[in-house]
Structures are given as structure tokens and as C-alpha cells.
Simulated scan of single mutants.
Amino acid sequence: MSELTAQTSKQIMLAADALALLKRLIATQSFSRQEDQTALLIEDFFRQNQIPFQRLKNNIWAKNLHFDEQKPTILLNSHHDTVKPNKSWTLDPFEPLESDGKLFGLGSNDAGGCLVSLLAAFAYFYDRPNMAYNLVMAASAEEEISGRDGLELLLPELPPIHFAIVGEPTEMQLAIAEKGLLVLDCTAHGVSGHAARNEGDNAIYRAIKDINWLTTYQFPKVSPTLGPIKLSVTIINAGTQHNVVPDTCTFTVDVRVTEQYTLEEVIETIQTHIESEVKPRSIRLKPSSIPADHPIVKAGIALGRHTYGSPTTSDQAVLDCPSLKCGPGHSARSHSADEFIYLREIDEGVDGYIRMLEQVL
């Protein structure tokens, strides 16, 4: 058997293993913070491929056989937790069902297809000698809730990462930038009084003034891939009864931040321009990007893929290295009722990852 034929046969077998693993993952409940059983399935995949692995809580990771500390390292990452199924499901979300070229089931698209495709690609390269890069594969937990016991917990245990491929459903297109997320809890302060008399200082009116600024202000720097920063007021609460002028009004702001600003810069700008008290819930979920001329991006473009900026947040937000979001499946199917992935997308995912990595390894 020629070397090329052997490699093709190995890829076909790994793609079949990836599909079988995906079906087992679908059949196993893995809500965020409850991923212990799917972690065992991923451990089994590594054992079956004779790949040593390590586990930290519900995060599973492994290094290539010929790992060399003198070489830079590529991180391959996707998550094995899922959201809870919504009430619109007409199928059993935990029953992997093949129909009309599709595989239905919770987590099939987000991000099971990406995870098993990356696992197959990692296994394909695992024992290859003389690569220019090391490979680390990390199947992480708690991505759907941006939890602290997911990839963020694991990163200090990993070797320094040169760049990362994060598996999320992008139809194997190249998301070279991703917006970060800020959630701001704001409080407008006034003075209570009787609504029937000209008393008090209505905190609602103070909040309205600030909300008007938030919904009309445009940050000057606009990202070429992600566009402008987007601010949305999503929750507001005030008052206890109809005849009392409220002395506080709280509101929540969802801020999608581009790579043109740090989260701290955005907070400072908002605090400067509004009177309400501003408290960020977290400054962990940073915007991320990778240069358009990076070798892994050029490898994807050579395969006919296009680049774009993603408005959604993933585990990229906790990475400090350049990162590319790319994977089989379609983002619009994520978190939807009767979630599915096309069977051909698994093959395309395995093949796409392997062909992209071939260009840099």
C-alpha cells in the first residue's frame, strides 16, 4: 500500500470514528457543568487511538507523540457541553437520528461536529514525526456559559500556544475576528417622593437620559471585519408602586466589543459619558482575531474558503494568542429545536482541518 493510500485510508477510518463518537455524545447528556459522562467518551476515543491524555475536571487534553518544547504549539479546541433543549423540540434531543443525510440531536451542530472533526484531525497527525509545530488537542467544558472551569481553567496547564483553531460551526469558513462581550449593570440614582406632588428626582428619567446616549453613541474606530461596537440595553427595572417616584433605576447593557478597543477602554468611555453607576460583570471575554495573512488563514483561503468577522462569542474570548474560528455546521442551527448537522459536513470537517494543517505542519 502506498503512503498516500494509507493516509487516505486512515482519514476515512477516523471520519467514521468521528461520526460514531458524535452519536455517542448526542446520546449522553452534557449540559454545562454536567459534562462528566461525555468527558469519559472522549477519554475512550483517545484510548482507542492509543493516545495518552490528561484530564482537569471535565476538560480533556492531549499532546502529539513527538512533542518538542523547542517548537511552537498549535491548539485545537472545541467544547463538549450543550445548552438545554428548548420546548420546541419535536424529536428526542438525546436520540441520534439519521434522516435525509442529516444527523439530528442536541449538540450535533454546536459543537459536536466540530469537536469530533478536530479529534479526528489530531489523531491523524498524532504520531507524525518532524512537524514544524506541536499539536495540543483540548476538549473543553462550560463554553456555553463562559464558565471558569472550562478552557480558562485549562490554559495554565498547557504549553505556550502560538495560535489556535477553535471549532465552532462556520460552514468551514474562516472567522478571523470575533467580538468580545461586556455585560454592564448600571444604576441611575435619584430621590424618592410622592408622585402627586412636585417632589423627588425620578431615577427613571435619569436612566432614560443615559440610555439615550448609549443607544446613539458611535465609537469612532470601526473594525474592518466586525464593524462598529454594538451596545444594547436589554433589561430595565425601577419602582415599587404607582404613586412613589423611584430613587433608583437599574438597567443592563450588552456590549459587543471589537478588536479596535480593549474592554477597559470601552468601560472608561461609557463611565465618562453617563451619570449612572457602571459595574462590569466581567472583563474576561475579550475580542479576538488572527491576521488575514496568517499561514493557517492562507491555507484555508487556498481551499476556497472566505474570511469574515463573527458577532458571536466562543472560547476564543479567553485566549491571548491569535485564533481562528472554523468548523463544520451552520451557526444558525445552534441552540435551535431539532438541531442537526449534515453527515457530509463531518467528512468535510475532518478533511478540511487536515488539509489546512498539512499546509503549516
Rank of each mutant, 00 (worst) to 15 (best):
123 A>E: 05
50 Q>D: 11
239 G>C: 02
265 E>D: 15
354 I>Y: 09
257 V>G: 03
317 A>P: 01
319 L>R: 02
237 N>D: 12
81 D>Y: 11
228 P>W: 12
318 V>S: 02
69 E>H: 12
105 G>K: 06
5 T>G: 02
258 T>E: 07
181 L>E: 04
220 P>W: 10
148 R>V: 11
337 A>G: 02
291 P>W: 02
65 L>C: 03
218 Q>K: 14
356 M>R: 06
214 L>A: 03
22 L>Q: 08
247 D>N: 12
269 T>E: 15
165 I>W: 04
125 F>K: 10
146 S>Q: 14
99 S>N: 13
73 T>G: 01
197 R>K: 15
324 L>P: 01
65 L>I: 00
356 M>F: 09
30 S>C: 03
212 N>A: 13
105 G>W: 08
62 A>P: 00
249 C>T: 06
66 H>F: 12
73 T>Y: 04
334 S>G: 10
46 F>H: 04
334 S>I: 00
70 Q>W: 07
120 A>Q: 10
104 F>S: 03
99 S>E: 15
204 I>K: 11
82 T>C: 13
234 T>L: 03
222 V>N: 06
355 R>E: 15
119 L>W: 10
16 A>P: 01
107 G>R: 03
264 E>G: 14
349 G>E: 02
63 K>M: 08
322 P>L: 06
231 L>W: 03
247 D>F: 13
38 T>F: 13
227 G>I: 05
158 L>N: 06
85 P>Y: 14
287 P>F: 04
60 I>H: 01
281 R>N: 13
21 L>E: 02
197 R>Q: 14
30 S>F: 02
230 K>T: 13
38 T>L: 09
49 N>K: 11
50 Q>Y: 08
158 L>G: 07
57 K>I: 06
20 A>L: 11
310 S>V: 00
16 A>C: 05
328 P>T: 01
105 G>D: 05
73 T>R: 03
74 I>S: 06
248 T>S: 08
208 I>Q: 09
304 G>P: 00
179 K>H: 09
347 D>R: 07
42 I>F: 12
170 T>C: 11
275 E>V: 04
85 P>T: 14
275 E>A: 09
185 D>Y: 11
198 N>Y: 15
303 L>F: 00
249 C>Y: 11
339 E>A: 04
142 E>D: 08
348 E>R: 12
168 E>V: 07
132 A>W: 13
39 A>F: 11
276 S>K: 05
173 Q>N: 14
268 E>S: 14
15 A>Y: 04
259 E>K: 12
86 N>T: 12
108 S>H: 06
161 I>Y: 10
304 G>H: 00
6 A>Q: 15
132 A>C: 12
47 R>K: 15
174 L>K: 05
10 K>D: 04
238 A>C: 03
239 G>H: 03
152 E>H: 15
3 E>T: 09
83 V>W: 06
250 T>P: 00
286 K>Q: 12
346 I>N: 01
7 Q>A: 14
230 K>N: 09
18 A>K: 05
237 N>A: 09
277 E>A: 08
184 L>V: 10
28 T>K: 07
240 T>G: 06
325 K>H: 01
151 L>D: 05
23 K>W: 04
339 E>T: 01
283 I>L: 15
323 S>T: 08
221 K>G: 00
40 L>H: 13
303 L>G: 00
306 H>E: 03
288 S>M: 03
147 G>T: 07
255 V>F: 07
158 L>Q: 10
156 P>D: 15
301 I>G: 00
142 E>Y: 08
260 Q>G: 06
176 I>P: 00
53 F>W: 11
